[in-house]
Protein backbone atom coordinates (compact mmCIF):
# COMPACT_ATOMS: atom_id res chain seq x y z
CA UNK A 1 0.00 0.00 0.00
CA UNK A 2 2.66 2.47 1.05
CA UNK A 3 4.76 1.45 -1.94
CA UNK A 4 1.82 2.13 -4.24
CA UNK A 5 1.22 5.53 -2.67
CA UNK A 6 4.81 6.58 -3.04
CA UNK A 7 4.82 5.46 -6.68
CA UNK A 8 1.60 7.35 -7.33
CA UNK A 9 2.82 10.47 -5.58
CA UNK A 10 6.04 10.37 -7.56
CA UNK A 11 3.95 10.08 -10.70
CA UNK A 12 1.70 12.98 -9.75
CA UNK A 13 4.71 15.13 -8.92
CA UNK A 14 6.19 14.45 -12.34
CA UNK A 15 2.77 15.01 -13.88
CA UNK A 16 2.43 18.43 -12.33
CA UNK A 17 5.76 19.53 -13.82
CA UNK A 18 4.83 17.99 -17.17
CA UNK A 19 1.52 19.78 -17.07
CA UNK A 20 3.20 23.17 -16.80
CA UNK A 21 5.46 22.55 -19.79
CA UNK A 22 2.66 20.97 -21.80
CA UNK A 23 0.30 23.84 -20.95
CA UNK A 24 2.90 26.21 -22.39
CA UNK A 25 3.05 24.10 -25.52
CA UNK A 26 -0.74 24.03 -25.78
CA UNK A 27 -1.41 27.72 -25.38
CA UNK A 28 1.16 28.53 -28.07
CA UNK A 29 -0.14 25.86 -30.42
CA UNK A 30 -3.75 26.78 -29.77
CA UNK A 31 -3.31 30.45 -30.61
CA UNK A 32 -0.32 30.60 -32.95
CA UNK A 33 -0.53 27.12 -34.51
CA UNK A 34 3.18 26.73 -33.85
CA UNK A 35 4.34 23.44 -32.37
CA UNK A 36 7.11 24.70 -30.14
CA UNK A 37 9.88 22.09 -29.97
CA UNK A 38 11.81 24.55 -27.81
CA UNK A 39 9.42 24.26 -24.86
CA UNK A 40 11.77 21.64 -23.38
CA UNK A 41 14.66 24.05 -23.78
CA UNK A 42 12.78 26.73 -21.87
CA UNK A 43 12.18 24.15 -19.17
CA UNK A 44 15.93 23.50 -18.96
CA UNK A 45 16.63 27.22 -18.93
CA UNK A 46 14.19 27.71 -16.05
CA UNK A 47 15.86 24.91 -14.15
CA UNK A 48 19.38 26.34 -14.46
CA UNK A 49 18.26 29.86 -13.75
CA UNK A 50 16.34 28.59 -10.73
CA UNK A 51 19.45 26.90 -9.35
CA UNK A 52 21.44 30.11 -9.77
CA UNK A 53 18.73 32.18 -8.12
CA UNK A 54 18.56 29.86 -5.13
CA UNK A 55 22.34 29.81 -4.85
CA UNK A 56 22.45 33.64 -4.82
CA UNK A 57 19.66 33.70 -2.32
CA UNK A 58 21.39 31.28 0.02
CA UNK A 59 24.73 33.04 -0.41
CA UNK A 60 23.02 36.33 0.42
CA UNK A 61 21.87 34.78 3.67
CA UNK A 62 18.20 34.30 2.88
CA UNK A 63 16.37 31.90 5.22
CA UNK A 64 16.41 28.41 3.59
CA UNK A 65 12.75 27.84 4.39
CA UNK A 66 11.73 30.53 1.93
CA UNK A 67 13.97 29.46 -0.95
CA UNK A 68 10.86 28.70 -2.95
CA UNK A 69 10.14 32.43 -3.28
CA UNK A 70 13.24 33.33 -5.31
CA UNK A 71 12.85 30.02 -7.14
CA UNK A 72 9.37 30.85 -8.41
CA UNK A 73 10.35 34.44 -9.11
CA UNK A 74 13.33 33.28 -11.15
CA UNK A 75 11.22 30.77 -13.07
CA UNK A 76 8.62 33.38 -13.96
CA UNK A 77 11.17 36.10 -14.71
CA UNK A 78 13.28 34.13 -17.16
CA UNK A 79 10.09 33.59 -19.13
CA UNK A 80 10.81 36.95 -20.77
CA UNK A 81 13.20 35.11 -23.11
CA UNK A 82 9.93 34.18 -24.81
CA UNK A 83 9.51 37.73 -26.09
CA UNK A 84 12.98 37.67 -27.58
CA UNK A 85 12.41 34.36 -29.35
CA UNK A 86 8.97 35.39 -30.57
CA UNK A 87 9.82 38.91 -31.76
CA UNK A 88 13.34 38.09 -32.87
CA UNK A 89 12.68 34.84 -34.71
CA UNK A 90 9.19 33.42 -34.95
CA UNK A 91 7.47 36.64 -35.98
CA UNK A 92 9.24 36.43 -39.35
CA UNK A 93 7.72 33.13 -40.37
CA UNK A 94 4.04 33.25 -39.40
CA UNK A 95 3.05 33.46 -43.03
CA UNK A 96 5.16 30.43 -43.97
CA UNK A 97 4.41 26.78 -44.00
CA UNK A 98 4.33 25.24 -40.53
CA UNK A 99 7.35 23.11 -41.43
CA UNK A 100 9.49 26.24 -41.29
CA UNK A 101 8.01 27.27 -37.97
CA UNK A 102 8.78 23.84 -36.60
CA UNK A 103 12.34 24.02 -37.89
CA UNK A 104 12.81 27.45 -36.39
CA UNK A 105 11.87 26.15 -32.97
CA UNK A 106 14.31 23.29 -33.59
CA UNK A 107 16.98 25.95 -34.18
CA UNK A 108 16.11 27.38 -30.77
CA UNK A 109 16.53 23.89 -29.28
CA UNK A 110 20.05 23.67 -30.70
CA UNK A 111 21.04 27.18 -29.65
CA UNK A 112 19.57 26.92 -26.18
CA UNK A 113 21.33 23.64 -25.39
CA UNK A 114 24.73 25.18 -26.03
CA UNK A 115 23.82 28.55 -24.53
CA UNK A 116 23.13 26.67 -21.30
CA UNK A 117 26.43 24.78 -21.52
CA UNK A 118 28.20 28.06 -22.21
CA UNK A 119 26.63 29.76 -19.20
CA UNK A 120 26.49 27.01 -16.60
CA UNK A 121 29.07 24.49 -17.84
CA UNK A 122 28.58 20.85 -18.70
CA UNK A 123 28.45 19.39 -15.19
CA UNK A 124 25.01 18.97 -13.61
CA UNK A 125 24.11 21.66 -11.09
CA UNK A 126 21.72 21.32 -8.20
CA UNK A 127 20.42 23.03 -5.07
CA UNK A 128 21.83 20.13 -3.04
CA UNK A 129 19.57 18.88 -0.28
CA UNK A 130 17.85 22.20 0.16
CA UNK A 131 14.42 20.88 -0.51
CA UNK A 132 14.55 18.64 2.51
CA UNK A 133 14.03 21.72 4.69
CA UNK A 134 10.34 21.13 4.30
CA UNK A 135 10.66 17.61 5.65
CA UNK A 136 8.51 14.66 4.75
CA UNK A 137 4.84 13.93 5.17
CA UNK A 138 3.32 10.54 5.87
CA UNK A 139 0.61 9.53 3.47
CA UNK A 140 -0.95 6.11 4.06
CA UNK A 141 2.35 4.89 5.42
CA UNK A 142 4.49 6.31 2.62
CA UNK A 143 7.02 9.09 3.12
CA UNK A 144 6.41 11.88 0.64
CA UNK A 145 8.62 15.00 0.54
CA UNK A 146 6.55 18.02 1.51
CA UNK A 147 8.24 19.97 -1.27
CA UNK A 148 6.63 17.63 -3.81
CA UNK A 149 3.24 18.35 -2.30
CA UNK A 150 3.94 22.09 -2.58
CA UNK A 151 4.78 21.70 -6.26
CA UNK A 152 1.65 19.65 -6.90
CA UNK A 153 -0.41 22.32 -5.18
CA UNK A 154 1.36 25.10 -7.06
CA UNK A 155 0.70 23.35 -10.34
CA UNK A 156 -2.97 22.98 -9.48
CA UNK A 157 -3.17 26.67 -8.59
CA UNK A 158 -1.54 27.56 -11.91
CA UNK A 159 -3.94 25.25 -13.74
CA UNK A 160 -6.88 27.02 -12.11
CA UNK A 161 -5.24 30.36 -12.83
CA UNK A 162 -4.94 29.53 -16.51
CA UNK A 163 -8.53 28.39 -16.55
CA UNK A 164 -9.57 31.68 -14.99
CA UNK A 165 -7.39 33.65 -17.39
CA UNK A 166 -8.83 31.91 -20.43
CA UNK A 167 -12.49 31.98 -19.48
CA UNK A 168 -12.96 35.00 -17.25
CA UNK A 169 -10.71 37.77 -18.53
CA UNK A 170 -10.72 40.00 -21.59
CA UNK A 171 -7.29 38.70 -22.57
CA UNK A 172 -8.63 35.14 -22.36
CA UNK A 173 -11.52 36.00 -24.66
CA UNK A 174 -9.11 37.47 -27.18
CA UNK A 175 -6.93 34.35 -26.97
CA UNK A 176 -9.87 32.05 -27.52
CA UNK A 177 -11.24 34.15 -30.34
CA UNK A 178 -7.85 34.12 -32.04
CA UNK A 179 -7.51 30.38 -31.58
CA UNK A 180 -10.92 29.82 -33.17
CA UNK A 181 -10.68 32.24 -36.04
CA UNK A 182 -7.68 34.43 -36.53
CA UNK A 183 -9.05 36.44 -39.45
CA UNK A 184 -12.21 37.22 -37.54
CA UNK A 185 -10.27 38.36 -34.48
CA UNK A 186 -8.03 40.51 -36.65
CA UNK A 187 -11.06 42.04 -38.35
CA UNK A 188 -12.43 42.93 -34.93
CA UNK A 189 -9.36 45.01 -34.29
CA UNK A 190 -7.23 42.62 -32.24
CA UNK A 191 -3.54 43.48 -32.55
CA UNK A 192 -2.08 40.09 -33.50
CA UNK A 193 1.50 41.12 -32.86
CA UNK A 194 0.79 41.91 -29.23
CA UNK A 195 -1.37 38.84 -28.71
CA UNK A 196 1.30 36.57 -30.19
CA UNK A 197 4.06 38.16 -28.12
CA UNK A 198 2.02 37.82 -24.95
CA UNK A 199 0.87 34.28 -25.65
CA UNK A 200 4.34 33.06 -26.51
CA UNK A 201 5.74 34.69 -23.40
CA UNK A 202 3.04 33.05 -21.31
CA UNK A 203 3.88 29.70 -22.89
CA UNK A 204 7.57 30.22 -22.25
CA UNK A 205 7.00 31.29 -18.65
CA UNK A 206 4.99 28.14 -17.96
CA UNK A 207 7.92 26.09 -19.24
CA UNK A 208 10.58 27.97 -17.29
CA UNK A 209 8.44 27.83 -14.17
CA UNK A 210 8.13 24.07 -14.58
CA UNK A 211 11.90 23.84 -14.87
CA UNK A 212 12.47 26.00 -11.80
CA UNK A 213 10.01 24.03 -9.68
CA UNK A 214 11.46 20.63 -10.56
CA UNK A 215 15.00 21.61 -9.77
CA UNK A 216 15.14 21.23 -5.98
CA UNK A 217 14.13 17.59 -6.43
CA UNK A 218 16.68 16.76 -9.10
CA UNK A 219 19.79 18.12 -10.79
CA UNK A 220 19.85 20.38 -13.84
CA UNK A 221 21.51 18.82 -16.87
CA UNK A 222 21.90 20.29 -20.32
CA UNK A 223 20.08 17.36 -21.97
CA UNK A 224 17.02 17.72 -19.74
CA UNK A 225 15.33 19.92 -22.34
CA UNK A 226 15.45 17.61 -25.33
CA UNK A 227 14.46 14.72 -23.08
CA UNK A 228 11.47 16.49 -21.60
CA UNK A 229 10.13 17.70 -24.93
CA UNK A 230 9.37 14.14 -25.98
CA UNK A 231 7.40 13.59 -22.78
CA UNK A 232 5.56 16.91 -23.14
CA UNK A 233 4.92 15.93 -26.71
CA UNK A 234 3.39 12.66 -25.52
CA UNK A 235 1.21 14.61 -23.09
CA UNK A 236 -0.24 16.91 -25.73
CA UNK A 237 -0.77 14.14 -28.24
CA UNK A 238 -2.63 12.03 -25.72
CA UNK A 239 -4.64 14.99 -24.48
CA UNK A 240 -5.19 16.59 -27.85
CA UNK A 241 -3.21 19.44 -29.37
CA UNK A 242 -4.28 22.86 -28.14
CA UNK A 243 -6.52 21.62 -25.32
CA UNK A 244 -5.82 22.67 -21.72
CA UNK A 245 -7.95 19.92 -20.25
CA UNK A 246 -6.06 17.58 -22.53
CA UNK A 247 -2.75 18.78 -21.11
CA UNK A 248 -4.02 18.15 -17.60
CA UNK A 249 -5.27 14.62 -18.25
CA UNK A 250 -2.38 13.78 -20.56
CA UNK A 251 0.15 14.86 -17.93
CA UNK A 252 -1.48 12.63 -15.33
CA UNK A 253 -1.55 9.67 -17.72
CA UNK A 254 2.09 10.07 -18.71
CA UNK A 255 3.36 10.96 -15.23
CA UNK A 256 1.66 8.09 -13.45
CA UNK A 257 2.26 5.48 -16.14
CA UNK A 258 5.91 6.35 -16.24
CA UNK A 259 6.19 6.08 -12.47
CA UNK A 260 4.43 2.72 -12.46
CA UNK A 261 6.48 1.39 -15.36
CA UNK A 262 9.76 2.42 -13.74
CA UNK A 263 8.97 0.55 -10.56
CA UNK A 264 7.38 -2.50 -12.14
CA UNK A 265 9.32 -3.07 -15.34
CA UNK A 266 11.96 -0.38 -15.95
CA UNK A 267 12.66 -1.49 -19.52
CA UNK A 268 9.19 -0.33 -20.45
CA UNK A 269 9.56 3.16 -18.98
CA UNK A 270 9.11 5.41 -22.01
CA UNK A 271 8.32 2.63 -24.44
CA UNK A 272 4.85 2.21 -22.99
CA UNK A 273 4.23 5.94 -23.28
CA UNK A 274 5.19 6.07 -26.94
CA UNK A 275 3.05 3.06 -27.61
CA UNK A 276 0.11 4.89 -26.04
CA UNK A 277 0.95 7.96 -28.11
CA UNK A 278 0.89 5.90 -31.29
CA UNK A 279 -2.33 4.18 -30.30
CA UNK A 280 -3.97 7.54 -29.62
CA UNK A 281 -2.68 9.05 -32.85
CA UNK A 282 -3.92 6.12 -34.85
CA UNK A 283 -7.36 5.85 -33.30
CA UNK A 284 -8.04 9.39 -32.13
CA UNK A 285 -5.64 11.61 -34.06
CA UNK A 286 -6.94 14.73 -32.35
CA UNK A 287 -6.27 13.27 -28.91
CA UNK A 288 -8.68 12.57 -26.09
CA UNK A 289 -9.84 16.18 -25.80
CA UNK A 290 -9.19 17.45 -29.29
CA UNK A 291 -11.86 18.45 -31.76
CA UNK A 292 -13.28 16.12 -34.39
CA UNK A 293 -10.65 14.35 -36.47
CA UNK A 294 -9.83 15.88 -39.83
Amino acid sequence: MSALVSILMGGVFHASILFLVAAGLQVVFGVQKVFNLACGSFYALGAYFGVSAVQWYVAAGGPPAFFIVPLIAAGALIGVTGVIVERGLLSFVYERDETFQLLLTFAVVLMMEDAIRLTWGTAPVSTSGLYLVYGQARLAGAAVPVYNLIVIAASLVIALGIGWLLTRTAFGRIIRATADNREMAEALGVDMRRVYAKVFTLGTALGTLGGALVIPATAAMSEMGVELIVEAFAVVVIGGLGSMRGAFVGALVVGILRAVAISVYPELEMLIIYLIVITVLVFRPRGLFGGAAA
Partner: peptide, 20 residues
Protein backbone atom coordinates in the same frame (compact mmCIF):
# COMPACT_ATOMS: atom_id res chain seq x y z
CA UNK B 1 34.66 26.26 -30.20
CA UNK B 2 32.96 23.29 -28.58
CA UNK B 3 29.56 24.90 -29.04
CA UNK B 4 28.64 23.81 -32.55
CA UNK B 5 24.94 23.67 -31.72
CA UNK B 6 24.86 27.36 -30.88
CA UNK B 7 26.39 28.25 -34.23
CA UNK B 8 24.30 25.74 -36.15
CA UNK B 9 21.12 26.80 -34.44
CA UNK B 10 21.83 30.36 -35.54
CA UNK B 11 22.58 29.17 -39.07
CA UNK B 12 19.36 27.17 -39.19
CA UNK B 13 17.36 30.14 -37.90
CA UNK B 14 18.94 32.42 -40.51
CA UNK B 15 18.23 29.86 -43.23
CA UNK B 16 14.60 29.48 -42.28
CA UNK B 17 14.05 33.22 -42.10
CA UNK B 18 16.14 34.50 -44.99
CA UNK B 19 16.84 31.60 -47.34
CA UNK B 20 14.20 28.88 -47.05
Amino acid sequence: VPYWRLVFGAILAALVIFAP
